[in-house]
């Protein structure tokens, strides 16, 4: 109960370091910083199969993250998966003949959208569409095909 200024200082330091810890978690550890970062624009791509792609999966070009998946929906008419992506506004020179493919990081890693730029001079704008897509590789399918093929070859 002895009120000393040392005690006040220590409590102040404690609270400050706790708040610094919280800020550290928010800004350095989590994706909060990428939330509040600059504007982004939305493009969509249609895939025959988007596999294990999820909302917030990264979108990258040449191995660099340039955006993230913002929505995935199923089109009941074309039976396709419609993937909406937010691309950082800094990267506004993506040609409209870009190829979007779904890759897997490592053998068991997360799936992500990879953009392979084409040669067109027309760049994608907000609500732009990527026409050329390559679906996710479904591991079961690939293995099945492989087994089927090797069985046929043996005949």
């Amino acid at each position: 109960m002895q009120h000393t200024s040392t005690q006040d200082t220590l409590v102040g330091l404690f609270v400050a370091s706790g708040v610094v810890g919280l800020f550290f978690l928010a800004l350095q550890v989590s994706n909060l910083s990428s939330f509040v970062e600059e504007d982004s624009y939305t493009i969509t791509a249609r895939f025959e199969n988007s596999g294990g792609l999820k909302i917030k999966s990264p979108v990258s070009a040449a191995g660099v993250k340039i955006g993230k998946v913002s929505a995935i929906s199923f089109d009941p008419k074309t039976y396709e998966s419609v993937v909406q992506m937010n691309i950082n506004a800094r990267y506004n020179t993506i040609p409209d003949d870009t190829t979007a493919s779904i890759f897997t990081a490592g053998l068991l890693g997360e799936q992500y959208v990879n953009l392979e730029p084409g040669g067109s001079d027309v760049f994608l704008k907000n609500d732009g569409k990527i026409e050329i897509t390559q679906s996710a590789i479904i591991l079961e399918k690939a293995i099945g095909q492989f087994l089927f093929k090797s069985a046929e070859e043996k005949k």
């Binding site: 928010a26 550890v29 989590s30 909060l32 990264p58 997360e110």
Partner: peptide, 14 residues
């Protein structure tokens, strides 16, 4: 750090 930032969500995790 960058992998961490990509996967840890502010609302869901922190």
């Amino acid at each position: 750090w960058s992998q961490m930032q990509a996967s840890i969500d502010f609302r869901d995790d922190i």
